[in-house]
């Protein structure tokens, strides 16, 4: 009976995951491997393609007639960042006004990323509320768990969208190359590289969406976040989800040695990535005079 309960919990969290997160790993991997029919993503690999694709960033549906002519063929081998033609990127620009508009374009792109992140926080919040017992916790503790867990969750959610050459954005409709992100001005260029390094390693664990759902719940239910008022019920909830995750991994990945232990180790790496990320955002606030941080993200990052 206990195993049946743990399986029911896994199913429940998987359903919530599918309900609240618009781009699943299954769909993302199909896009990245070129197996989703004719719908290759629009590729952003330099300033010119960013300018062309800018209007579609964060659109859930790119208008087909506008999208298609500009789509750079991803090729049968899937989406990669190579062989995409001459580099017209920021490094090639010498004109001062061109440089100025590139700077503004980068800042606008950063603001789009912030909007999507804020929407992501909303999605994660809805997912958290679906974890059995979560909404019965002290409301202040719910806030604390989200404040400390949500960036970790968003980083994990990014991994399935990435390969070594780039990442899907805009609900899977745009592929942005890693090289292009690295070519942006400091500190923008430093923001994504640690996430790529983490994701490429994380993806070798080959979790599927049902495993991911449980892992995200485990992260959210961390009883060691600073300022929690009532730790015990959180730890009890996490314990149950951990059991469910352990059973799920045994059934779903019978040949993967020590997968459960390997996954738990990733939680330590994640904390360092979030610390570095918040540090970069604080740096940005000092260096970019025109930057305004989204109020929800400000709330989350303040005193983190």
């Amino acid at each position: 009976p206990e195993a049946a309960d743990l399986r029911a919990l896994a199913r429940h969290l998987y359903e919530a995951y599918l309900k609240y997160f618009p781009l699943t790993k299954a769909k993302a991997r199909a896009i990245l491997s070129g197996k989703n029919g004719d719908n290759a993503p629009f590729v952003i690999h330099d300033m010119k393609s960013l300018m062309e694709g800018e209007q579609f960033i964060n659109c859930r549906q790119i208008p087909i007639q506008e999208h298609q002519p500009q789509t750079l063929s991803a090729g049968l081998g899937g989406v990669t960042g190579v062989h995409l033609g001459p580099d017209c990127g920021i490094l090639g620009m010498t004109n001062i006004s061109e440089q100025g508009s590139a700077d503004a374009l980068e800042l606008r792109f950063f603001h789009s990323c912030q909007s999507r992140s804020a929407e992501g926080v909303r999605e994660v919040t809805e997912f958290a509320k679906s974890i059995p017992g979560f909404i019965n916790l002290d409301l202040n503790d719910q806030v604390t768990l989200l404040k400390y867990g949500v960036i970790e969750v968003l980083i994990i959610m990014m991994a399935p969208l990435m390969n070594k050459d780039g990442t899907l954005i805009s609900y899977g409709q745009i592929f942005m190359t890693r090289e292009f992100l690295k070519s942006l001005r400091k500190p923008f260029c430093q923001m994504m590289e640690p996430k790529f390094e983490f994701s490429v390693k994380f993806n070798t664990l080959e979790l599927d969406d049902s495993d991911m759902a449980l892992f995200l719940a485990v992260i959210i239910l961390s009883g060691d976040r600073p300022g929690l008022l009532n730790v015990k019920p959180i730890e009890q909830l996490q314990e149950t989800v951990l059991h469910s995750l352990e059973l799920q991994l045994k059934l779903n990945h019978p040949d993967s040695v020590q997968l459960f232990a390997k996954l738990l180790q990733k939680m330590t790496d994640l904390r360092q990535i979030v610390t570095d990320h918040v540090h970069l955002i604080q740096l940005l606030k000092k260096t970019e005079v025109d930057m305004c941080l989204h109020p929800l993200l400000q709330e989350i990052m303040k005193d983190l």
Binding site: S115, A118, E119, V121, R122, T125, E126, K129, I135, L139, N140, Q142, V143, L146, K147, H294, P295, L296, E299, I300, K302
Partner: peptide
């Protein structure tokens, strides 16, 4: 509570849209 106003809103309003 004031410090995390939007998070509180997100947690408490399950159906009403929150202005993000």
């Amino acid at each position: 509570k004031e410090k995390h106003k939007i998070l509180h809103q997100l947690l408490q309003n399950s159906t009403s849209p929150v202005d993000l």
